[in-house]
Design a protein around this nucleic acid. Structure first.
Ligand SMILES: [Zn+2]
Ligand SMILES: [Zn+2]
Ligand SMILES: [Zn+2]
Ligand SMILES: [Zn+2]
Lengths: 163, 163
DNA sequence: TATGTTACGTTATAATATAACATTAATATG
DNA sequence: CATATTAATGTTATATTATAACGTAACATA
């Protein structure tokens, strides 16, 4: 990453995703150990499935996969795991898509802005201080105390612009 | 409005909402006439119901009201009207709440940022050029061509901070 | 009037998410 | 270890949000 503001870059076509996955899982394990939380098999598997690729994943697609793998899964199975993973900062929900993506900076408190290509579906996650501050200041000047920002930017990624 | 960036201000407790409503409806009528579109009774009524107050309104609440009014209505009745009103820029959807609010600058192309009080539910709509530009530039610098922004800011409005 | 288009009625179903309560697994404590 | 306690999961049911599909009516305009 050439820019620290980029938490999850648009993944290059040739990147080895297995290494993303490996580091994401081991970070989550470390975080949970430190926090005295349990990254149970279900939670771990759901985190893997959210990170299946760099695109938003739907809850019911996760559910289907779990059911195909080992039965014993219902909607609450998935939503509970997603709730846990969101609460611990391992995944984010894209509100405008009802879908979930893995966090590129798990375990750190940070702002989030998502860039979402509406052609290929790829997502990048940013943690841009300036955007957060500007919005916070604007809100302040209106007497509004901002506590949570949803920023989701749809458009065309560079490779889809080329096509 | 002391600030042009504010499209829909937080409504003062004492404001006369009937005048909001009246001007919103007549603007929508004018726009539709100019554009050769039909603001049918259903569409008009749904717009009124979205503007019932300055808070987000749920699709199925609109549906209930229509049904209570003896109008034959089913989910498509409401969603079609909402689709039309969104397409023409008379209402916006708050993606993080699956709810709808009236647009404070109907008929004009503009950016939108919403401030949403999670205590009292009141919503303000902004059209802040700086926010839009900053985000557009950040995206540009990453080779991303932004076409649509979802910006929803949750927090405490000034009157709820006082309590 | 005939014709094409837009809007609406109607039924059904898809997609997303949570409530409520029972059961099991993990952890803590004596 | 035994047992109390809590955390996590299983299970069933339901709530909420949204769209598909197809027929009918209203409207335009030629
Ligand atoms: Zn990867
Ligand atoms: Zn793309
Ligand atoms: Zn008002
Ligand atoms: Zn408030």
């Amino acid at each position: 990453m050439q820019d620290k503001q980029i938490v999850t870059p648009f993944s290059p076509a040739d990147h080895q995703h297995s290494s993303c996955l490996k580091s994401v899982l081991s970070t989550a394990e470390d975080c949970c150990r430190q926090r005295g939380l349990r990254l149970t098999p279900i939670r771990r598997r759901v985190l893997e499935l959210v990170w299946k690729n760099h695109e938003p994943v739907k809850a019911y697609d996760i559910l289907e996969t779990l059911q195909a793998e080992k039965k014993r899964a219902a909607p609450p199975t998935v939503y509970r795991a997603l709730d846990f993973l969101q609460a611990e900062g391992f995944v984010h929900k894209l509100e405008s898509m009802n879908a979930y993506v893995g966090c590129g900076a798990p375990g750190h408190h940070h702002t989030t802005q998502f860039l979402i290509c509406h052609t290929c579906g790829v997502v990048a996650e940013l943690d841009d201080i300036e955007i957060g501050e500007l919005i916070g200041n604007k809100a302040d000047s209106l007497g509004f105390k901002a506590t949570h920002l949803t920023i989701e930017i749809k458009g065309l990624c560079s490779s889809c612009q080329a096509d």
